[in-house]
Simulated assay, not measured.
Amino acid sequence: MSEISLGISIEEYQSLSTAERYLIEYINRNIETIPTLSIVKLSELANVSTATIVRTMKKIGYEGFTSFKQTLKNNIADESKYEFIEQVDQEIKQAILKNEAEVTNTIKMLKTGLIEDAIQKIMSVDKLYLFARGFSEMIASEMAVKFQLLEKNAEMHNDPNIIRSISKRITPKELVLFVSLNGFTEELVEACKNLKISNVSTITITANVDSPLAELSEMVLVGYKSPHSYFPEYEVRSRLPLQVISRILLDAYAIRRRSEL
């Protein structure tokens, strides 16, 4: 019996009845599945009454089974946050931590004031255009659909010739949002130059603040791009930072739009 895992002293354990001790031992043997069980299911599996469960929980310092489960969930989460990583190959472990770094560092880099400015700008214009190329197209396409669901007049373009052409016709009452990992895509940079000449506001979601696209844009939301790539021969680096930014921007836009209605 491992009383310590549940925070029960030897004295407390010895004060329990036979049925209560049996329940504690059952919980210890099945500690990982306990948080998923209801009190009724635990009663069936452990072959004890729900009254015994409630009584036992109170004796070991909890209001009931639900409060015990919540504490157990928190403890398991704290203790096993990275436990599974220790069981995998070193290179796979690095891949897992690389993705974690991209998410956490991107969130740290985002400025709430800039997010708010971008939201207000999007809300104020008559129409929103989204331009993207390559793998970034999927992110821009999803954003366009979600903006449309939020009743924003939005359309996405990925054809280089159409991007160049449309960028010359967009008015200052409209807005263009670029999604580009590196910010060097030729047609996107050219489009941004055209928009700047026409005094059209632009927002760029990127992972490269030192790119031509970032320098030309009115507002830039920058994410963290890991220096490591598992596809070094191809330009297929992770777009995870861009996905994180787009998700935050969309969620914040939905919240702000709801508050303004």
Score class of each variant (00 low, 15 high):
Ser2Gln: 07
Glu3Lys: 07
Ser5Pro: 01
Ser5Trp: 05
Ile8Gly: 10
Ser9Asn: 02
Ile10Arg: 03
Ile10Gly: 00
Tyr13Glu: 05
Gln14Met: 11
Gln14Phe: 06
Ala19Asn: 11
Arg21His: 04
Tyr22His: 13
Ile24Met: 12
Tyr26Lys: 07
Tyr26Ser: 09
Ile31Phe: 06
Glu32Arg: 05
Glu32Asn: 08
Glu32Met: 05
Ile34Ala: 14
Thr36Lys: 11
Ile39Trp: 00
Leu42Ser: 11
Glu44Lys: 09
Glu44Ile: 06
Glu44Ala: 08
Ala46Pro: 06
Asn47His: 13
Thr50Lys: 12
Thr52Arg: 00
Met57Ile: 09
Lys58Asn: 08
Lys59Cys: 01
Lys59Ala: 07
Tyr62Ile: 12
Gly64Leu: 12
Gln70Ser: 05
Lys73Ala: 12
Lys73Val: 14
Lys73Cys: 15
Ile76Tyr: 03
Ala77Trp: 09
Asp78Thr: 06
Ser80Met: 09
Tyr82Gln: 03
Ile85Phe: 10
Ile85Lys: 05
Asp89Pro: 04
Gln90Trp: 06
Ala101Gln: 15
Lys108Pro: 03
Leu110Phe: 00
Leu110Tyr: 00
Thr112Cys: 01
Ile115Gln: 06
Ala118Val: 03
Met123Val: 02
Lys127Ala: 02
Lys127Glu: 11
Phe131Asp: 12
Ala132Gly: 13
Ser136Asp: 12
Met138Asp: 04
Ala140Trp: 12
Glu142Asp: 13
Met143Ser: 07
Met143Lys: 10
Met143Val: 06
Met143His: 02
Gln148Cys: 04
Leu150Tyr: 05
Glu151Arg: 01
Glu151Ser: 07
Glu151Trp: 01
Lys152Val: 14
Met156Ser: 05
His157Ile: 04
Pro160Glu: 08
Ile163Pro: 13
Arg164Pro: 00
Ser165Val: 13
Lys168Pro: 10
Lys168Glu: 15
Ile170Trp: 10
Thr171Ala: 02
Lys173Ser: 15
Glu174Ile: 02
Leu175Cys: 08
Leu177Trp: 10
Leu177His: 07
Leu181Phe: 08
Phe184Ala: 13
Glu187Tyr: 03
Val189Met: 13
Asn194Trp: 06
Val200Trp: 08
Ile203Thr: 05
Ile205Gly: 02
Thr206Leu: 01
Thr206His: 00
Val209Glu: 11
Ala214Tyr: 03
Ser217Gly: 10
Glu218Asn: 12
Met219Asn: 08
Met219Ile: 15
Val222Pro: 06
Gly223Glu: 04
Pro227Asp: 09
His228Asp: 10
Ser229Trp: 07
Tyr230Gln: 01
Phe231His: 10
Pro232Asp: 11
Glu233Ala: 14
Glu233Phe: 11
Tyr234Thr: 13
Arg237Asn: 15
Arg237Phe: 09
Arg239Asn: 15
Leu240Gly: 01
Ser246Ala: 14
Arg247Trp: 04
Leu250Asp: 01
Leu250Glu: 02
Ala252Asp: 09
Ala254Gln: 06
Arg257Ala: 03
Arg258Ala: 15
Ser259Ile: 02
